[in-house]
Amino acid sequence: MAGETTHTSDPKLDPIQAPAHDPVPALTRREAMLQMLRVGGIAAVATGGGYWLSEHSSRPAAVHAEQARRDHRIAANPQWPKMTVVQGGEPRALAQRALADLGGIGRFVSRQDVVVIKPNIAWDRTPEQAANTNPDLVAEVVRQCWQAGAKRVIVTDVSCNEPRRCFQRSGIQAAARAEGAEVILPDPELYREVELGGVVLKTWPVFTPFLEADKIFNLPIAKHHGLTGATLSMKNWYGILGGERNRLHQQIHQSLVDLASFMLPTLTIMDCYRILLRNGPTGGNLEDVALKKTVVASTDPVALDAYVAKAYWNLDPEHLPYLQMAANRGLGTVDFDKLPVKFSNLA
């Protein structure tokens, strides 16, 4: 085929042009066809692609948020008290007794459960400064979850201060890892937009591990707080959110209730081993810390918060409007004295 190229002119008839240029070979029909096909193909793809893209043009919309209230509660059982207050021991012993008083870990964790434990790991503080949950308390809960046959035990929080510092200096990373828990730091890329369905909290980024749990244990620490007087178990749910959570203070009571009715924990175990009486929630000064050697655990977060606020800050539910608001939403009761509460003293 290559030999079939034809000359446009006879060099003998046109002696002037011939030496100046190499003869330009014309396309064979086959080559012309191929070229047409190629150009046609490109044009067709461009048209098709362009049309398809223009069909898909729309104003950028927010990602579709998932919508699901996280209800990890277990069925109430009149055989066991709703709340327990254990005093006079070291954190591990306190946690052991608290869990035993409420029916044992087996009541809360089933085999093959993915358990997420949510301590407060918000600040770059050591355990003595009582700004984060006590590491031994966390470790004990981890240990018991394994005993109950959990598939995974995850310890995580979305810190305020630099997370790597908070996780180390709180002692929680080391203590939880020593018990074999997965410790997950708040990776900025691990959030999902979630429709919280609250009155003021609509769509917020939630740290993914909290969305993939079978059971959730809330392990807050009782601390003073400038805006509300005290920060207790419901405030600990701030730590599941990403985004600009500094706006939540503007309607703090409604925010707390919105969060608490989105995230319903299996059990709340409040660390009152050391509590922070002043300059919370960051503290730092050991003079602000009081050693109470107490753990309060409950399946009713409202009653628990009401009890701790009264016990350590002498705050009645009127002072903490979110308690009544939460009760109205059916999250629990503010009248902790009407609940079956068990008190034990290890000392």
């Binding site: 707080h225 400038g226 500094n246 203070h249 503007q250 309607q251 703090i252 002043r278 960051t282 730092g284």
Partner: peptide
């Protein structure tokens, strides 16, 4: 500032202030 100018609760700054007393 929200509580000064916009009649809105806030004091997030106070929450974060790390020194003690704040």
């Amino acid at each position: 500032c929200l509580p000064w100018a916009l009649a809105t609760d806030c004091i997030v700054c106070e929450e974060w202030c790390p020194v003690s007393p704040k």
